[in-house]
C-alpha cells in the first residue's frame, strides 16, 4: 500500500480511522464489566441529576442518597472502598442510552422496572430496592380530596418517565380528559406547576414530598391520596454480562439479608465471631460465597462496613434520620409486613 501511494499522507488518516474503529468495535463486543471496572479502578454509576433522598450532591459536592449508597455498596464489594465511584448525573430521557452505550457500568437512579424496558431495550433490572407508586401534588385551596376530581385539569409531568404513561392511562381508564404539559426535567416541571401553569404535578410518591419542598410555599400544596401505579425501583445493568448482573443483584440481596440477620455497620466486625450459621455464611466466615461473584469471601463485610445494611441506608436517606421522614411501609422486611424478601446466602 505504502509503495503505491508514497506522496499521499491525506489518505493515511481515513484508513487509520477505519482500522481504529474496527478494532474498537471488536473490543467493545467482548464485555466483562467487572474486569473493566477493576482495570479502571473506579465504578461509573449513572444517578439522578438531583433528587433529595435518592441522589443529590451535598454542600461540599459529595453525592448522597439511597441510590448513591447502592453505587457505594457495589464499589465497596469490589474495591473495599466506597469512595471509588464516579457519579454520572443522567436525565430521565438519557439514562437508558447512557447505560446501553457503556457510558455507565450501572444505573442506580430511582428507575421503574417495566417489561418493555427490560425485554425491549437490552436491559436487566437487578432486584426491587424501593417499592413506590405514582401520586399527585395539588394546591390545598382547590380543596380536592381525590385525584378523580382532576378531570379537565392541566398536569405537569417529567419527560421520559413511567409517570408520563401512567398519567395517560389513568385518565383513559377513568374516561377523563386532561392536558399534560411535559418538561425535560422534574425541576422545570415543578417550577411550571408552582407558577400556576398546571393544577397538579405528578410523579412517584417518594419524589412528590421532595419536589413539594421546592415550591415557594410548600404548605399550600397537598399530596392527593390516590396511588395510581406500581413503581418498583431497581438498579439496572446491560444484558449480556451475567456475572456483573449477579454481582449487582447479590449486593442488593446481601444488604437485605444483613438487615434481616441484624448485621449493621456498627456490629459487623464483632458478628464475625457469631455462632449463627446464617451470619457466619453471610460474612464469609464459613464457606466462600464471594468466589462465584468474582469477589473475596468477606464481600458482605466490606459492603456493610461501608454503607450499613438496607435498613440503615433507608433510614439515613429517606426515613426517620432524614428530612423526608418516609415510613418504611411496603419497604419493610417481609417479617415486618413489608415486601422485601431476599433469597438466602448459602
Amino acid at each position: 500500500m505504502r509503495k503505491h501511494v508514497p506522496k499521499t499522507p491525506r489518505l493515511v488518516f481515513p484508513v487509520c480511522l477505519a482500522v481504529c474503529l474496527a478494532l474498537l468495535a471488536s473490543v467493545a463486543r467482548a464485555e466483562n464489566t467487572l474486569d473493566v471496572v477493576r482495570g479502571r479502578g473506579v465504578l461509573v454509576c449513572g444517578v439522578n441529576t438531583g433528587l433529595a433522598g435518592f441522589g443529590l450532591p451535598d454542600d461540599r459536592g459529595l453525592w448522597r442518597g439511597f441510590d448513591i449508597d447502592y453505587c457505594r455498596a457495589v464499589a465497596a464489594a469490589i474495591f473495599d472502598d466506597p469512595g471509588k465511584v464516579k457519579f454520572v448525573p443522567l436525565s430521565g430521557k438519557d439514562r437508558f442510552t447512557a447505560l446501553q452505550s457503556g457510558e455507565v457500568d450501572l444505573l442506580s437512579r430511582n428507575t421503574t422496572w417495566t417489561q418493555s424496558r427490560e425485554a425491549g431495550q437490552g436491559l436487566l433490572f437487578t432486584g426491587i430496592n424501593y417499592f413506590d407508586g405514582q401520586g399527585f401534588l395539588a394546591r390545598k385551596k382547590l380543596g380536592l380530596d381525590s385525584a378523580s376530581k382532576l378531570s379537565g385539569a392541566s398536569i405537569c409531568v417529567q419527560q421520559g418517565t413511567t409517570s408520563e404513561l401512567n398519567l395517560a392511562d389513568y385518565f383513559r381508564k377513568s374516561g377523563f380528559r386532561a392536558e399534560t404539559v411535559v418538561f425535560s426535567t422534574a425541576d422545570e416541571a415543578i417550577k411550571a406547576y408552582d407558577s400556576g401553569r398546571c393544577d397538579a404535578f405528578t410523579t412517584d410518591g417518594s419524589a412528590l414530598y421532595v419536589q413539594r419542598m421546592k415550591t415557594t410555599s410548600p404548605d399550600d400544596h397537598e399530596v392527593l391520596p390516590e396511588i395510581i401505579s406500581k413503581e418498583p425501583f431497581a438498579p439496572v445493568v446491560r444484558q449480556g454480562d451475567d456475572r456483573w448482573f449477579n454481582l449487582v443483584k447479590w449486593t442488593h440481596f446481601a444488604l437485605l439479608d444483613a438487615e434481616e440477620l441484624g448485621v449493621t455497620s456498627a456490629n459487623v466486625e464483632q458478628l464475625r465471631k457469631s455462632d449463627n450459621p446464617e451470619i457466619r455464611r453471610l460474612l464469609g466466615v464459613e464457606g466462600d460465597f464471594g468466589a462465584g461473584l468474582g469477589l473475596p469471601a468477606d464481600w458482605v463485610v466490606r459492603i456493610v462496613r461501608a454503607v450499613g445494611n438496607y435498613g440503615e441506608i433507608f433510614e439515613r436517606n429517606l426515613g426517620a434520620d432524614s428530612p423526608l421522614k418516609i415510613p418504611r411501609g411496603l419497604n419493610a422486611q417481609w417479617r415486618q409486613g413489608g415486601l422485601h424478601y431476599a433469597p438466602p446466602v448459602r
Partner: peptide, 23 residues
C-alpha cells in the same frame, strides 16, 4: 422547546427514544 414543555419534534422523539430504546 423541550425545556419549556412544548411538544416539538425533539421533545416528542426524546420521549419515544426513552420508551422504545430505539435510540
Amino acid at each position: 422547546a423541550a425545556f419549556i414543555g412544548f411538544a416539538d419534534l425533539m421533545q416528542v422523539s426524546g420521549t419515544i427514544l426513552n420508551q422504545t430504546g430505539a435510540a
